[in-house]
């Protein structure tokens, strides 16, 4: 128990479980399956973008990707427009979404490295360009996804939403990268001290480059999934994932200053963020009270998590 409580992600799960329990108790447990399925479904999107943001933040102070929402929008828009509800083009759409992510990642790091623009400014400015491209590309037209993709994105397997299974698959890959692979070690090393990492022979530029590309590709995949799930890409569909991608990283116990990351916390944070809003809605809290309580609970969770002894 003591070792478990010392894990940085522990408190995000405690919080998520607490609000889950409070929500289902409102109906005496009758809503258990409904609430759990909804939470897994909607947390899945935050998890996928949160994993990318987690690596970026772990690179150290000043590293954050603000182009996630516009990347989601552009990837969803381009993929759906090319597929044009045609089931035969699903693979092409998927490849295009990944390509959009790759390009955006390359551009982002290009701005950061070649033009020496701080990441916050670089990704913010590229987000304007990406968003404008999305507007120019289809002027807000909502194109329906192919039927197979709608079925997949809104369906369940053995009672578990498919999007949550996708998030799980991606999380396992990311966990291996972070905990077992050399890439994860390098990201953490750079985040702890970039100069030391460079002197120790870590390929700093290559690792940072790969991280920004990875983040953009994950955002693209999330954008494609979300647009299939909600019946079409909309220009404003990624907006709420800007702050929530950062929030789930922080709530999940990843160090904001960089150098230390963990995958389970992204799940705890994402489930918690969805459930806390559902719980307060269920209890009929007004929007003002809801925002206030959400803020207070988040501060509480972060405080609890940060009281762990330093390793």
């Amino acid at each position: 128990m003591r070792t478990l409580a010392a894990k940085p992600w522990f408190w995000s799960f405690v919080a998520a479980f607490g609000v889950w329990l409070a929500t289902i108790l409102f109906t005496g447990g009758a809503s258990t399956i409904g609430v759990s399925q909804a939470a897994l479904t909607f947390a899945a999107f935050s998890i996928i973008v949160g994993l990318g943001q987690m690596f970026v933040i772990t690179l150290g102070p000043g590293n954050v990707d603000l182009s996630i929402p516009s990347t989601m929008t552009l990837a969803g828009t381009v993929a759906l427009k090319v597929m044009e509800t045609n089931d035969g083009l699903v693979l092409l759409g998927l490849i295009l979404a990944v390509l959009v992510g790759l390009c955006i990642g390359v551009v982002n790091y290009g701005l950061i490295k070649l033009l020496r623009i701080p990441p916050i400014i670089a990704t913010l400015s590229s987000s304007f360009i990406i968003q404008s491209t999305a507007i120019w590309y289809n002027r807000g037209i909502r194109i329906k996804p192919p039927a197979t993709l709608i079925q997949f994105a809104t369906g369940t397997t053995l009672g578990i939403p498919n999007v949550a299974l996708v998030a799980l698959l991606i999380s396992v890959v990311i966990w291996v990268l972070l905990e077992k692979g050399i890439y994860g070690r390098r990201v953490s090393a750079i985040g702890q001290n970039m100069r030391a990492a460079r002197l120790a022979g870590v390929p700093v530029d290559g690792t940072r480059f790969a991280t920004y590309v990875l983040c953009a590709v994950l955002a693209s995949l999330a954008g494609l999934l979300l647009s299939c799930f909600s019946g079409g890409a909309a220009l404003n569909m990624g907006t709420e994932y800007l702050l929530s991608s950062i929030a789930v990283v922080v709530i999940g116990g990843t160090a904001v200053a960089g150098g230390s990351a963990n995958v389970p916390g992204i799940w705890g944070g994402s489930l918690f963020l969805f459930l806390v809003v559902s719980m307060l809605n269920t209890y009929g809290a007004s929007a003002g009270v809801r925002l206030l309580l959400t803020g207070i609970i988040i501060i509480g969770v972060i405080l609890a998590a940060s009281r762990r002894p330093l390793a």
Partner: peptide, 20 residues
């Protein structure tokens, strides 16, 4: 619930409160 005048936000908020 607050749907922020956006389909995806509304869908998420309604899905969260519906079971209750």
């Amino acid at each position: 619930v607050n749907g922020d005048w956006a389909q995806d936000v509304a869908q998420k908020a309604v899905a969260g409160i519906l079971p209750s």
